[in-house]
Design a protein around this nucleic acid. Structure first.
Lengths: 335, 335
DNA sequence: TTGAAAGCGCTACCAG
DNA sequence: CTGGTAGCGCTTTCAA
């Protein structure tokens, strides 16, 4: 089924059918109707591949994320998609699962598909790959939630400040043995959150101890991290998690070891995903506006968008959300 | 950047480049190397749209689901994708959010993309749409997790039996006021789980009371459902949820109303998503093997697959997973 | 307002 | 083993 058959049936040329299908309003109304009828009678669906090829654009955006299982990424996807849809764009998601191999593969796929824009929200960015990408001339947005934005695109979440607020708050209510739970992909120099943690805690001087652990992103990873932490002999009064997703895993391990939250240990998350309200106890966390991120990503990818060009630079400041997973440090506890 | 430029650079014809890129092993090794070099020097990425157009196939599968936020669907996606990848296929997901409009839109999009196969795992199947789809000649698998499989494709989860097992178990430990929490999309005649619930409970006769409620799929929906249920005056000894996702919402509402689980009320989920182990208390649920579903979907879509054709029909039987969210009915409680 | 025709980049068939 | 070339289905001038 193709344009030609439709054209034949409607008694017009393929050019005219194309015009009708693309809402080019030079077509006489009666002609348009004939075409429309033929289209529906034949149950015709334009071949998008041919369209993209001939037209040189796909009205499709690509989004590559590290872990769709983590609601943070899913939320960004949904928000990007919502914005895209209302601008008549589509978005294709790809999940790397933190694998560099998958990352390469999906980037190439996106290039192969000739997406009109690509958003890369991952932690495993390889410089070589970035070159390959920029070489492709596809408008791209990099956003590494575990690090500072690579290419200035006007989105900046102040992770450092967020962590500071968490630590300050905990310190204020008496916590002096803090632990940070990160995930592997956020280790190393790129981990803004972890760095911020270490620096902030260090600034309190000797009387405040800290430790960091890491495992995979996810429930299991959080649980393992907590287990390792507790097995290490360090007895934290509070555990700061790199995200809510892992925090839920941490909560479980604490529960199983008979530790009360926040009675014995306070726990904080990060992102403020829906689950952070529904887990037990509900998590104290930092709200990261995924909707805004999706919106900004769209706007920076699609030039034609940005209706009233809102400054292009948006710094998202932390908003601490206090819930039941945190409280005052246990008064007297052996060191 | 296209085949021709690569061909020119390598000093061969486009046909040869194409052969190399497609691993057609008639190419002399030295020639292949020249081409490979040109490809990487030019940072060439084949245009997949052109490829699909010319080749008549995309090696891409489409998957449409109701609610990616519900880990059940995400798991099916990941499993389908894993299987697809290992067979050199790609999969594109689309989320309807239970909206019929989105459903139509995405089906058309998939047809437009000329996917080589389409899996539709939703609750909002419209007969008209199904006609449109079958007209498109794209191999399709329908699988409605809330109903019985439409097109026999060899996957069948025995939902009825699963619900029966849950109810029997609860009844055996003394529960006699049961409630079912469903979601809107699973209402009506298509809701196998709800029907099974009603019928099973009814079979216990007068001494066992029951009620059903429904709300949106999700944490909030579960919570609302629980709230409505409790506000109705009915005092269930156990709440059977259509899936784990909603069950977590139910748990929260019970907690906020000061009801203990399972002390005052037992709660069950369905699917056995990861979260069911991590919520509090961990959910008694029924394990639904998403990995198998993804695998079967792939095999029924891609004929060339199914290496040792495993019978094509797989009935997945329920496996009850007992955890802490259920227990004996509270001994003496006012009716 | 409409039609004819030249590509878009690639595959696959036919020769050689 | 390699090249030439006819499409794949659609968009987009250019003319009429």
């Amino acid at each position: 089924m193709n344009l030609e058959e439709v054209a034949k049936r409607a008694g017009v040329s393929t050019a005219t059918v194309s015009r009708v299908l693309n809402n080019i309003d030079v077509v006489k109304n009666s002609t348009r109707n004939k075409v429309m009828r033929a289209v529906s009678e034949l149950n015709y669906h334009p071949n998008l591949n041919a369209r993209a090829l001939a037209g040189g654009k796909s009205r499709t955006l690509g989004l590559i994320v590290s872990n769709l299982e983590n609601p943070f990424f899913l939320d960004v996807f949904r928000s990007l998609e919502a914005e895209a849809h209302s601008n008549n764009y589509e978005v294709i998601v790809a999940n790397t699962g933190y694998s560099a191999e998958q990352m390469v593969k999906h980037v190439r796929l996106m290039i192969g598909r000739r997406v009109d824009g690509l958003a890369v929200i991952v932690s495993e960015l390889d410089p070589e790959l970035m070159r390959e990408l920029s070489h492709s001339k596809i408008p791209t947005v990099f956003y590494d939630p575990g690090a500072k934005p690579r290419h200035a695109i006007g989105i900046r979440v102040n992770y450092r400040r967020s962590i500071e607020r968490i630590v300050e708050y905990l310190h204020a209510v008496g916590h002096n043995r803090l632990a940070f739970v990160g995930h592997h992909a956020s280790l190393g120099p790129i981990s803004e959150r972890e760095k911020a943690f270490v620096e902030t805690v260090s600034s309190y001087g000797e009387q405040t101890e800290y430790r960091t652990v890491a495992d995979q992103d996810g429930f299991d990873g959080g649980r393992n991290a907590a287990r390792k932490l507790l097995a290490s002999g360090f007895e934290p009064t509070a555990i700061i998690c790199v995200n809510d997703f892992m925090a839920v895993g941490v909560l479980r391990e604490l529960r199983e070891q008979g530790l009360r939250v926040p009675g014995d240990i306070s726990v904080t998350g990060f992102d403020n995903i829906k689950l952070s309200e529904y887990c037990y106890p509900p998590l104290t966390t930092v709200h990261i506006p995924r909707e805004q991120i999706g919106l900004m990503v769209f706007q920076s990818l699609v030039r034609e968008a940005a209706p009233n060009a809102p400054g292009r630079e948006l710094v998202l400041d932390p908003e601490l959300v206090l819930r039941e997973s945190t409280g005052a440090a246990p008064a007297a506890r052996k060191r």
